[in-house]
Design a protein around this nucleic acid. Structure first.
Length: 382
DNA sequence: AGCAGACCTCAGAG
DNA sequence: ACTCTGAGGTCTG
C-alpha cells in the first residue's frame, strides 16, 4: 500500500454551511470515528482525505466501496467531497428551520440500507455494529497510525452461509437474520443496480448524471412513492428504515423518517398524539410525513433532520455517552486463502457521564481539506 | 385498519 | 451480584 500526498485544498464552504461535528454525529452515518486528537476518520472510496481546522486538528480519512467508480485525481476528490457532503445547496436559501451546518450526506445506498437495518438502537451501538461489519467482512483499505481501515462490505461478502450465525455471536441479535437475508437478496436476486436505480434522478449516486424528478405531491414525488414499495419488501426494512435509506442514501429529500424521537417532536410541536393520530400507527406515520412536506416541501427531510439534531443536541449538552473499548479476544484466522488481517471481537461499554458542552463547537473556523491518493500496490495473500 | 407481543441486546434501576 | 424493565423498529398474529 502506498500513500501519495497532494496539495492542501480549501474546502469551498464555511462552517455555517457545513458543521462536521454535528453532521457526522447526528445519526445519519455510522462509520465516521472521532479520535482522541479530535480527528474524524472513515474509509470511503479509494482516497485518503485530510481536513484540518487551524486548531484543533480534524482529519478525514477515506478509502472505497468496491462498487463505486474509481477516483484517482485530486479534481475528482473535490467532486467526491462536494457530492458526499452535499455541498451544492445553499443552506441560507432553504426555508427549513435555522440550524447551521447540518448537511444531509449523500451516502452509498447499500451502506445506508444495512446501516439503518441496525438502527433499532442508540447511535453509539449502531456505530459499533457497523464497525464490526467492516472489520469482519469489509476489504482492508489501509493501515495508518496503528489503525486499520476497512471499507464497507459488499452484498456478496455478507451473503455467505455463516454470516447470520457469526453476526449473532457478535451481538447483532435479531438484526443478524435481517442483514443476512437482505444481503442475499441484493447480491443474488435483485442486484446492486436495482438499489441504485431507486435513487432520486435529481440527486443520483456519485458519477451518474442528473435528471429531472417531477412534481412534488402530498406523499412525495412519483419516484419516491414508487421506491417506497420496493424497499419495504426486504427483511428488516419497515417504513422508518426505508425512509432513512431514501433520505440519506438515495437522495429523496422529501423523505421524513419518523422514529420515536420525531414522533415526540410531532406531538410536542405539531399537535399530533390526539384523536385520530393518538399512537404511531402506519396511518399516523404517513400523516406526520405529509405534514412536514406541507410545511417544507421537497426539503422536508432536511428540516426533519435539523429538528431532530437540535433535540439531540440539547440532549447532548447535558449527557454525553463516553465510550470505553475493551478488547476481549484477538484471533487471526484464514478464510478462502486470503488473510483476514485481524479478527478482533471488541466489546464496547457505554458509560453516561455529565459533561459540559465542548468548547469551540460552533466556532467559525476555516475548514481545509488535504487530499491524498491511495494506491493498492498488491493484494495481500496468505 | 389498529394493536400487542416477540425478537435481541444493553444500560440503568431496584 | 442479581433480576427486572424499558428503549429501539420490524414482523407476526
Amino acid at each position: 500500500m502506498t500513500l501519495r500526498a497532494a496539495e492542501w485544498h480549501k474546502l469551498p464552504t464555511s462552517l455555517t454551511e457545513l458543521c462536521i461535528n454535528t453532521t457526522l454525529r447526528c445519526g445519519q452515518s455510522f462509520r465516521w470515528r472521532k479520535s482522541a486528537e479530535d480527528e474524524w476518520s472513515c474509509a470511503l472510496h479509494a482516497l485518503h482525505y485530510r481536513a484540518i481546522y487551524p486548531s484543533p486538528t480534524t482529519k478525514l480519512l477515506t478509502p472505497p466501496p468496491s462498487n463505486a467508480p474509481s477516483v484517482t485525481a485530486e479534481d475528482d476528490t473535490l467532486a467526491l467531497i462536494n457530492h458526499y457532503f452535499n455541498l451544492a445547496p445553499d443552506l441560507g436559501q432553504l426555508r427549513a428551520p435555522k440550524f447551521t451546518g447540518i448537511r444531509i450526506l449523500r451516502q452509498d445506498a447499500w451502506e445506508a440500507l444495512i446501516g439503518f437495518i441496525c438502527s433499532s438502537n442508540n447511535i453509539s451501538r449502531i456505530s459499533g455494529m457497523v464497525h464490526n461489519l467492516c472489520l469482519h467482512y469489509g476489504p482492508l483499505i489501509a493501515h495508518l497510525d496503528d489503525v486499520t481501515y476497512h471499507d464497507f462490505p459488499t452484498p456478496d461478502a455478507l451473503s455467505g452461509p455463516d454470516v447470520e450465525a457469526h453476526l449473532m455471536k457478535l451481538g447483532f441479535g435479531y438484526r443478524a437474520k435481517y442483514i443476512a437475508k437482505t444481503a442475499r437478496i441484493v447480491s443474488q436476486d435483485k442486484g446492486l443496480k436495482w438499489l441504485q436505480d431507486l435513487s432520486n434522478p435529481e440527486c443520483p449516486q456519485f458519477g451518474v448524471p442528473e435528471q429531472p424528478a417531477g412534481e412534488l405531491l402530498e406523499g412525495g414525488r412519483e419516484g419516491y412513492r414508487k421506491a417506497h414499495e420496493e424497499l419495504l419488501a426486504l427483511h428488516g426494512v419497515g417504513p422508518k428504515v426505508a425512509d432513512c435509506v431514501y433520505l440519506f442514501g438515495l437522495g429523496w429529500s422529501e423523505s421524513v423518517p419518523v422514529d420515536t424521537h420525531v414522533w415526540q417532536i410531532a406531538q410536542r410541536d405539531y399537535k399530533f398524539g390526539k384523536d385520530k393520530h393518538s399512537s404511531l400507527t402506519a396511518a399516523t406515520y404517513i400523516a406526520v410525513g405529509n405534514h412536514f412536506r406541507k410545511l417544507w416541501g421537497k426539503e422536508a427531510g432536511w428540516a426533519h433532520s435539523v429538528l431532530f439534531t437540535a433535540d439531540l443536541k440539547a440532549f447532548s449538552e447535558r449527557v454525553v455517552a463516553k465510550k470505553e473499548v475493551k478488547e476481549e479476544e484477538v484471533v487471526v484466522k484464514q478464510e478462502d486463502g486470503e488473510t483476514v488481517v485481524e479478527d478482533v471481537i471488541k466489546k464496547e461499554t457505554t458509560k453516561r457521564k455529565r459533561v459540559k458542552k465542548e468548547p469551540g463547537e460552533n466556532e467559525h473556523n476555516v475548514l481545509e481539506v488535504k487530499t491524498e491518493t491511495t494506491r493498492r500496490s498488491k493484494r495481500q495473500r496468505a
